[in-house]
């Protein structure tokens, strides 16, 4: 068991180290940082002074060590395009992305699980067939097309919802939230639907498959034989038993919600980290790219590790397997 835990933690650290190395290589060797920072009219002597000041003339090993040390403190230097500290930029944008991802996840779970349960209990019903057909289209459609469609219907035609931005926000300490104002909540609706739709279809399809499987099991037949109500059988017994894989997938999908928020934030001009990242890709702003890369890697690795370790608690086979090894 200890062996298993150590192996997982080792794997997680390996991923982080590799990503940090990639970030360093990007930062140091892709394009000349000095050229990116200063204009063309800066003299060679000034460039050299800046180079010395930033420590870019030290040996590679020293630079790498410093980069890793700074990365541990989440210090990625100064953005080329905004001339501001990357940490400040990311910290200012983080709440927007967090709130969007949270709303999208809640939407996907709250709608996805009931839809999946319904289609699993009544696979032949017209609604179920309609949903399965729709979900195939939903999976094949690029996210941005769905966003544009929503904007056209609800912002341009019906004018119910705003088409871009976060609406009014309230500053609480370092956190800028859109949850507390009416316009902030209205602005949240379409982006979170767009971002959550793919996860919704994924969750619904998974719950459906699991329900179909469980409904055939003996304990369900027994529950029926005991004379339990349809409702108790479906929800207390069947649905409850599908939830372990569903929770796993939801956990693993948090990472891709963060990644796909790049697209949604672009469509709705949502001022989060994804929008910051995409402008940094357009302008080859390496420090911001490196910081985003590290941040996403940390999120992904933490989630994967948590899921792995949770399995350890849930599935005794893993514990026994490693005890024998």
């Amino acid at each position: 068991m200890l062996h298993y835990v150590l192996k997982r933690i080792g794997g997680a650290i390996l991923v982080l180290v590799v990503v940090a190395l990639i970030a360093f290589v990007l930062f140091r060797f892709v394009g000349d940082p000095i050229n990116q920072m200063v204009g063309q009219d800066v003299s060679v002597a000034d460039r050299e002074r800046l180079r010395q000041m930033l420590g870019l003339d030290d040996s590679i090993v020293v630079q790498l060590a410093r980069f890793l040390w700074n990365a541990l403190h989440f210090d990625f230097g100064v953005s080329y395009q905004f001339k501001e500290k990357v940490t400040t930029l990311v910290a200012a944008r983080f709440p927007a992305t967090f709130e969007l991802s949270l709303a999208a996840s809640i939407f996907a779970i709250v709608v996805g699980i009931p839809v999946g349960a319904y289609t699993g209990i009544r696979p032949k019903a017209l609604m179920s067939r309609a949903f399965m057909a729709l979900s195939l289209i939903g999976v094949s459609l690029p996210t941005f097309l769905i966003g544009i469609l929503l904007i056209y219907v609800f912002a341009v035609r019906l004018q119910w919802l705003p088409s871009y931005g976060r609406g009014e926000t309230v500053q609480i300490g370092f956190w800028r939230t859109g949850f507390l104002t009416k316009s902030g909540l209205a602005a949240l609706v379409m982006p979170s639907i767009t971002l959550g739709l793919f996860q919704l279809t994924l969750i619904a399809r998974l719950v459906r498959a699991e329900m179909l499987e469980v409904m055939r099991a003996d304990f369900i037949r027994f529950a029926r034989a005991r004379g339990l109500s349809e409702r108790a059988v479906n929800f207390r017994h069947a649905l409850k038993n599908t939830l372990v894989p569903v929770v796993t997938i939801i956990g693993l999908q948090i990472g891709s919600i963060v990644a796909f928020s790049i697209i949604t934030e672009t469509v709705f001009q949502w001022p989060g980290m994804g929008l910051l990242f995409i402008t940094s890709v357009q302008n080859a702003d390496i420090p911001v790219m490196a910081a985003y890369l590290m941040m996403v890697a940390i999120i992904f690795v933490t989630i994967n590790l948590t899921v792995d370790l949770l399995y350890l608690a849930i599935d005794p086979r893993i514990r026994l397997g490693s005890a024998q090894a």
């Binding site: 991923v15 990644a259 796909f260 790049i262 890709v281 890697a297 992904f300 690795v301």
Partner: peptide
Amino acid sequence: VQLTFPAILTAL
């Protein structure tokens, strides 16, 4: 390591 990230992010 690459599978840790979605393909769209790698491509970006």
